[in-house]
Design a protein around this nucleic acid. Structure first.
Lengths: 326, 326
DNA sequence: ATGAAAGCGCTAACAA
DNA sequence: TTGTTAGCGCTTTCAT
């Protein structure tokens, strides 16, 4: 027997019907100890492993969850994907991972792929397709950090507070000529808007000037460098910057050091990786693990048709992490 | 019709048999333009999407690939997972992601889960279960950076050269009292051994002293800090360190800066993230994208039963990236 | 406590 | 060119 054994083979070897084997496997119905034992022996002997795909087809539940994110190569997404998968696997769900690289066509393709593979639900952290595209899925979906929708649950960190906290810290550091660089994904990510609003509100309240650059941030470092470089050229008297994520902040930090400028930099995200690599960076920390936990909790509630206490919009608190002095 | 439409529904609406619909979907056999059109209209009208799970069951091929790695939260793994998924999705394969967190029991559980879900193959970058555990799977498997095996293809970067390159750079920087900290995963990862050997050989060739610490590196920063701290205490005259990965190197770098020591640090991996965050770090760069590409190429060859030109062991070249001056 | 039969949604012989 | 039939590996009524 070199072929993969199936349930029927086990049944034959144990001298029982397939039904009985199935019952043993799933602990259902009443089975005599004798038969249970014989079945288990046969399973052992054949090194039998049930085919989950066949099972999924029958019960029309796969226990697959689709994750759509820009790229696990970015620390924020790499970490949140890790936490989500980790929490889901505890609950016996399996994760299909999709990296859209911010390309709308990929996102659409992935969405269809996940539907075709009968995922029980999805968690989406990518931003290039209108959220209405997802509504058509008629599936439990939780989104992270995107436009609020009537039908899809959205989780985000408190971006407005994040913007305020950053601006307040710049003031506390005595910086008065600051700018904010704001990466706006194609489809109106509310996170960017809220962060910007928070930052601008604080400065306005203090009667200070501010300038916000809204740019489409590419993933590659070089383009970011050029962009930051020309912004620095335009503002020779700049003394503070609030960047939309830590990686961009890291680039700005090196650049400012190279130019020997005294510009105070604040980032956003506060991932483990960046915190470890750049302990001197001040940043607004998102509660990544809590966001992952909440996303999973809400998704599983929806999957189990428990819609009690499910709001459409969740906001988790952020906090400032001050960089360590060098 | 609020239920998900199936192939049969399409057939009925189009007034043809299920077979015909299947043929249209898969572009197989000869179909008249008229029927093809009618079928396509019915598909459109019902917003029908084929059930891949049912299809998988029938053809006993899922196009699922399992990825077993320590954690996508670590930049090296996050990036390699990204590349692997990216390349695989181009070939219409789907990726199930598993984060073992270096726990053997999780790794075993994931392995069984992947087998139960009928993956067509696996790429493994985790290190806590003996490789023989995988042999039993009787499945195409490619391993990254682990013990060479007779039966499983292993890809690694040239760790011995990596060790040599690092040691040579330390010498070039005029460092003569150096140590190497070597994170040895539980089950004899050859990568650690080879890097160490390369480092030690070079120093021995120059008649220089060296010291290698082989420690089980935990994931958390604090424990690493404590460990590094006591090593630094033991060696007040140290002037060079070669760390087994960039994150640990980053921690060492901050620590050395805090202590105002002149210790030259060399890391290992050269991920985009760390390169961006710490451009001043000198490191041995692994060809991450090339490793991902090769892993996928070999895996798909094995899946397609093409074993020509498949060796059991592949080594890709590393290079030194010198940190930028601050 | 156990088994026979039907079927989850799809595809591939084999016929016509 | 199209349809009929059987079956991928499993589970679940419904009998007994």
């Amino acid at each position: 027997m070199t072929e993969k054994p199936k349930l029927e083979d086990v049944a034959k070897l144990a001298g029982v019907s397939p039904t009985t084997v199935s019952r043993v496997l799933n602990n259902r119905g009443a089975i005599s100890d004798k038969t249970r034992q014989r079945v288990n022996e046969a399973i052992e002997q054949l090194n039998y492993h049930p085919n989950e795909i066949a099972r999924s087809l029958f019960v029309s539940k796969t226990h697959f969850i689709g994750l759509i994110f820009p790229t696990t190569g970015h620390p924020f997404y790499g970490e949140i994907v890790f936490h989500i998968e980790n929490i889901l696997s505890e609950k016996n769900y399996k994760v299909l991972i999709c990296n859209t690289m911010d390309q709308a066509d990929k996102e659409t393709k992935y969405l269809n792929m996940l539907l075709a593979n009968q995922v029980d639900g999805m968690i989406v952290g990518a931003h290039n397709v209108g959220i209405d595209t997802y509504q058509r899925a008629h599936l439990p979906i939780v989104a992270i950090d995107r436009k609020v929708s009537d039908t899809i649950t959205v989780i985000s960190s408190d971006n407005y507070q994040g913007g305020r906290i950053a601006a307040e810290e710049l003031l506390r550091q005595g910086r008065t000529k600051t700018i904010h660089i704001n990466s706006a994904p194609q489809h109106e990510a509310p996170s960017s808007y809220q962060r910007r609003k928070g930052y601008e509100d604080v400065l306005a309240e203090h009667g200070l000037p501010f300038k916000t650059y809204t740019v489409e941030l590419p993933f590659d470092t070089e383009t970011k460098q050029q962009m930051l470089s020309s912004i620095l050229d335009e503002h020779p008297d700049l003394d503070g910057m609030f960047l939309s994520d830590d990686i961009t902040a890291a680039i700005a930090l090196s650049m400012v050091r190279n130019r020997k400028k005294d510009i105070f930099i604040i980032g956003y995200d506060g991932t483990e990786t960046v915190t470890t690599c750049l302990p001197e960076l001040t940043t607004v920390v998102q509660p990544i693990r809590a966001m992952a936990q909440l996303a999973v909790d809400l998704l599983l509630k929806e999957i189990n048709n428990d819609f009690t206490d499910i709001k459409k919009n969740y906001m988790l608190p952020v906090k400032l992490r001050r960089g360590e002095q060098l």
